[in-house]
Design a protein around this nucleic acid. Structure first.
Lengths: 129, 129, 129, 129
DNA sequence: GTGGTCTAGACCACG
DNA sequence: GTGGTCTAGACCACC
């Protein structure tokens, strides 16, 4: 599992890290109980500040994707994984709506959009990049 | 066409305005040449800062969704509408990827995700809310 | 509403702030919609770092006690106040249990303990300190 | 007397151990003069670091709940048990106050809170878990 | 060694 | 002027 940062991205660094870890879980590269690098190690590897990593980890912990274990350090959640809550679905729609709106304006057909989604799904489920 | 602001949304106000105008175009409620309220008017109606409206309009202009004329005011683009550029597609995928990743983690099936997208598409194309 | 910090306390500063704001709400000194000082202002007033205040505010926001409003700044939650969840009760008992255990060992009678609780309740509900 | 550790608790391990031993005394499961396992044994049984157990024991000794003899090992205090000092009461109130504050905010009635305390008292005094 | 807390100072996005 | 993000460096609590 290799994390990469795009310092030009419009996503802040801590969100990029969060996204990539979640993506790793989706792909099955990270399984419940798997260890994550320590805050300091990862910070050094990525060349960013400790606190930035910490922020990503804290968010992932809050949302239930990881556990911050007193002994074992940081590991992927092994009990009570986050589920498809009402709230998440509302949030998901809220984020999808503007993407779909603009895509329609730019002449993208529904099929093309769905296709793109399916492609991304395949990438994740097959574990390919 | 009524704009509404959610002051607690994680989207900044200017983006909410931009999104809703683009959505209006997608739905066909706003057609090329249609006038938009002046910066001052809209700012007053929504109870937000003029700068905020201005920022939304400038962005929409830059991306080619509206035209700003000194005389006629602000109107929906009537020539050279934005298209499905390579760049937009890349950006779209970049935004879809984390949404899909998290949805998979939360146990959402591909079908359910596609369904949600289709529902939003229908809402936009039928002009319903 | 005056906040005070005890730099010798075994509670970290950000928790002291969080506690006092919640106490202010309990006492009715802070009502839904009431504004809280800005991060920087409060930091200056208390002589602590901005980030420490921010941490307290972020926690309060997460738990639903305050809203961080794009326009109005920080205000006491005015919709969907936190409730008595199963989870909170579990956490409450977890914290009460060691307090009660040690009190028993030190010879405190149940009545005396209950009395202390009631005294604190009265203080909060009457708004006195 | 079985000790259990929750590695995800917000209480550090050494405090969990301390709490459980005090609880054991409160319940009467541990009586003055009763032996406690050696640091090494307990560390092995719980799968935690020796230092951690040591810290818990040292604290319990300092506060007067246990005695540590070179020969006889660790035993529950048999003389000069801790009492209800002014200082302890102040500390107790300091810890109760935020719990009560938040409970009020979440709509818990005084009766319900008292009830919860009484329930915990009963559990301790009857020796049930 | 780990994460948790706090400080100080910087720049940016937002309004 | 607001909060959001990031950096750098410090000390402490925990294990």
């Amino acid at each position: 599992m290799i994390l990469t940062i795009d310092f030009q991205s419009d996503f802040p660094i801590y969100k990029q890290i969060k996204h990539q870890i979640i993506e790793g879980i989706a792909k099955g590269e990270l399984k419940p109980g798997d260890p994550l690098p320590s805050v300091r190690m990862l910070a050094q590897d990525l060349g960013v500040n400790m606190h930035t990593i910490n922020k990503a980890y804290q968010l992932l912990k809050q949302e239930g994707f990881i556990q911050i274990h007193r002994q074992r350090g940081v590991v992927i959640q092994s009990e009570g994984f986050p589920t498809l809550t009402e709230e998440y679905l509302k949030n998901l729609e809220e984020h999808l709506r503007p993407l779909i709106g603009e895509s329609i304006c730019r002449g993208m057909k529904e099929d093309a959009f769905i296709n793109l989604c399916q492609t991304i799904f395949k990438q994740m489920e097959k574990g390919g990049k």
